[in-house]
Protein backbone atom coordinates (compact mmCIF):
# COMPACT_ATOMS: atom_id res chain seq x y z
CA UNK A 1 0.00 0.00 0.00
CA UNK A 2 2.86 2.37 0.80
CA UNK A 3 4.56 4.16 -2.04
CA UNK A 4 8.25 4.93 -1.59
CA UNK A 5 9.20 8.57 -2.00
CA UNK A 6 12.33 10.61 -1.69
CA UNK A 7 12.10 14.27 -0.93
CA UNK A 8 14.49 16.95 0.12
CA UNK A 9 13.05 19.11 2.85
CA UNK A 10 14.91 22.24 3.87
CA UNK A 11 18.04 20.85 2.28
CA UNK A 12 17.90 17.45 3.96
CA UNK A 13 16.99 14.29 2.03
CA UNK A 14 14.26 12.03 3.40
CA UNK A 15 13.04 8.62 2.29
CA UNK A 16 9.65 7.37 3.33
CA UNK A 17 6.79 5.11 2.38
CA UNK A 18 3.55 6.99 2.16
CA UNK A 19 -0.06 6.06 1.68
CA UNK A 20 -1.15 7.59 -1.66
CA UNK A 21 -3.88 9.63 -0.01
CA UNK A 22 -1.54 11.24 2.50
CA UNK A 23 -1.46 14.97 1.88
CA UNK A 24 1.91 16.64 1.72
CA UNK A 25 0.99 18.78 4.73
CA UNK A 26 0.32 15.66 6.78
CA UNK A 27 3.57 14.10 5.61
CA UNK A 28 5.44 17.18 6.84
CA UNK A 29 3.53 17.42 10.09
CA UNK A 30 2.91 13.80 11.05
CA UNK A 31 5.72 11.87 9.40
CA UNK A 32 8.59 14.37 9.52
CA UNK A 33 7.17 16.09 12.64
CA UNK A 34 7.73 19.54 11.17
CA UNK A 35 4.67 21.18 12.60
CA UNK A 36 5.33 24.74 11.53
CA UNK A 37 3.14 24.21 8.47
CA UNK A 38 -0.49 24.39 9.54
CA UNK A 39 -3.90 23.25 8.36
CA UNK A 40 -6.62 25.89 8.59
CA UNK A 41 -9.22 24.76 6.09
CA UNK A 42 -10.30 21.93 3.81
CA UNK A 43 -10.58 23.85 0.58
CA UNK A 44 -7.19 25.29 -0.32
CA UNK A 45 -8.50 28.70 0.74
CA UNK A 46 -6.67 29.83 3.88
CA UNK A 47 -3.00 29.49 2.96
CA UNK A 48 -1.84 28.35 6.41
CA UNK A 49 -0.24 25.33 4.71
CA UNK A 50 1.73 27.35 2.13
CA UNK A 51 5.22 25.95 1.47
CA UNK A 52 7.60 26.03 -1.45
CA UNK A 53 7.90 23.02 -3.72
CA UNK A 54 10.60 23.15 -6.36
CA UNK A 55 10.94 26.86 -5.79
CA UNK A 56 7.25 27.77 -6.06
CA UNK A 57 4.71 28.63 -3.39
CA UNK A 58 2.09 25.90 -3.21
CA UNK A 59 -0.64 24.82 -0.81
CA UNK A 60 0.53 21.61 0.80
CA UNK A 61 -3.02 20.61 1.77
CA UNK A 62 -3.88 20.20 -1.91
CA UNK A 63 -0.86 18.15 -2.97
CA UNK A 64 -0.34 14.50 -2.25
CA UNK A 65 2.87 13.50 -0.55
CA UNK A 66 3.56 11.09 -3.43
CA UNK A 67 3.51 14.05 -5.79
CA UNK A 68 6.45 15.54 -3.94
CA UNK A 69 8.59 12.53 -4.85
CA UNK A 70 11.95 13.73 -6.11
CA UNK A 71 11.11 17.28 -5.17
CA UNK A 72 12.66 20.05 -3.13
CA UNK A 73 10.52 21.34 -0.30
CA UNK A 74 11.08 24.44 1.78
CA UNK A 75 9.03 25.12 4.88
CA UNK A 76 9.07 27.77 7.59
CA UNK A 77 11.59 25.60 9.47
CA UNK A 78 14.00 26.13 6.59
CA UNK A 79 13.75 29.90 6.35
CA UNK A 80 16.78 30.74 8.42
CA UNK A 81 19.46 31.76 5.88
CA UNK A 82 22.26 29.99 7.73
CA UNK A 83 20.13 27.20 9.13
CA UNK A 84 21.45 28.24 12.46
CA UNK A 85 18.82 30.46 13.93
CA UNK A 86 19.65 33.66 12.08
CA UNK A 87 16.34 35.14 11.08
CA UNK A 88 15.39 35.67 7.47
CA UNK A 89 14.52 39.32 6.78
CA UNK A 90 10.87 38.29 6.50
CA UNK A 91 10.94 36.60 9.88
CA UNK A 92 12.63 39.68 11.28
CA UNK A 93 10.08 41.92 9.56
CA UNK A 94 7.15 40.08 11.08
CA UNK A 95 8.67 40.54 14.52
CA UNK A 96 9.72 44.16 14.06
CA UNK A 97 6.42 45.28 12.57
CA UNK A 98 4.18 43.12 14.78
CA UNK A 99 2.99 41.17 11.77
CA UNK A 100 1.61 38.33 13.84
CA UNK A 101 -0.59 37.80 16.84
CA UNK A 102 -1.64 34.17 17.36
CA UNK A 103 1.01 33.01 14.89
CA UNK A 104 -1.09 30.33 13.23
CA UNK A 105 -1.22 31.89 9.75
CA UNK A 106 2.31 33.27 10.06
CA UNK A 107 4.33 30.44 8.49
CA UNK A 108 2.07 30.42 5.44
CA UNK A 109 2.18 34.20 5.23
CA UNK A 110 5.98 34.21 5.35
CA UNK A 111 6.23 31.52 2.67
CA UNK A 112 3.77 33.39 0.44
CA UNK A 113 5.66 36.63 0.99
CA UNK A 114 8.98 34.94 0.25
CA UNK A 115 7.63 33.82 -3.12
CA UNK A 116 6.43 37.36 -3.84
CA UNK A 117 9.77 38.97 -3.02
CA UNK A 118 11.61 36.54 -5.25
CA UNK A 119 9.48 37.67 -8.18
CA UNK A 120 9.14 41.29 -7.19
CA UNK A 121 11.78 42.66 -4.82
CA UNK A 122 10.11 46.04 -4.55
CA UNK A 123 6.37 45.47 -4.35
CA UNK A 124 3.87 48.25 -3.79
CA UNK A 125 1.30 48.00 -1.01
CA UNK A 126 -1.29 46.96 -3.60
CA UNK A 127 0.99 44.27 -5.00
CA UNK A 128 1.65 42.91 -1.52
CA UNK A 129 -2.05 42.77 -0.71
CA UNK A 130 -2.75 41.08 -4.03
CA UNK A 131 -0.03 38.51 -3.43
CA UNK A 132 -1.60 37.62 -0.07
CA UNK A 133 -5.03 36.96 -1.54
CA UNK A 134 -4.66 33.26 -0.80
CA UNK A 135 -3.76 33.68 2.86
CA UNK A 136 -6.19 34.45 5.67
CA UNK A 137 -5.19 36.22 8.84
CA UNK A 138 -7.97 36.72 11.36
CA UNK A 139 -5.87 38.59 13.96
CA UNK A 140 -3.97 41.47 12.40
CA UNK A 141 -6.29 42.97 9.81
CA UNK A 142 -3.25 42.57 7.49
CA UNK A 143 -2.00 46.14 8.22
CA UNK A 144 1.13 45.02 10.02
CA UNK A 145 1.64 42.05 7.71
CA UNK A 146 1.92 44.48 4.82
CA UNK A 147 4.40 46.55 6.84
CA UNK A 148 6.38 43.42 7.76
CA UNK A 149 6.79 42.50 4.11
CA UNK A 150 7.76 46.06 3.22
CA UNK A 151 10.36 45.91 6.00
CA UNK A 152 11.80 42.70 4.59
CA UNK A 153 11.77 43.99 1.04
CA UNK A 154 13.66 47.12 2.08
CA UNK A 155 16.18 45.10 4.02
CA UNK A 156 16.70 42.54 1.27
CA UNK A 157 17.20 45.26 -1.34
CA UNK A 158 19.79 46.93 0.85
CA UNK A 159 21.54 43.60 1.35
CA UNK A 160 21.68 43.13 -2.41
CA UNK A 161 23.06 46.65 -2.89
CA UNK A 162 25.71 46.32 -0.22
CA UNK A 163 26.37 42.62 -0.46
Amino acid sequence: MGVPIQVTVNGKPYKAEVEPRQLLVHFLRDTLRMTGTHVGCDTSSCGACTIHMNGEAVKSCTILAVQADGGEIKTIEGMSPDGNGTLHPLQEGFKEEHGLQCGFCTPGMIMAADALLKENPNPSETEIRHALEGNFCRCTGYHNIVKSIQYAADKMRKEVTHG
Partner: peptide, 9 residues
Protein backbone atom coordinates in the same frame (compact mmCIF):
# COMPACT_ATOMS: atom_id res chain seq x y z
CA UNK B 1 -7.48 32.86 -11.15
CA UNK B 2 -7.36 31.91 -7.47
CA UNK B 3 -4.22 33.09 -5.74
CA UNK B 4 -0.49 32.76 -6.44
CA UNK B 5 -0.15 29.29 -4.92
CA UNK B 6 -3.20 28.04 -6.79
CA UNK B 7 -1.86 29.50 -10.02
CA UNK B 8 1.37 27.60 -9.54
CA UNK B 9 -0.45 24.25 -9.59
Amino acid sequence: IGDPAVRNK
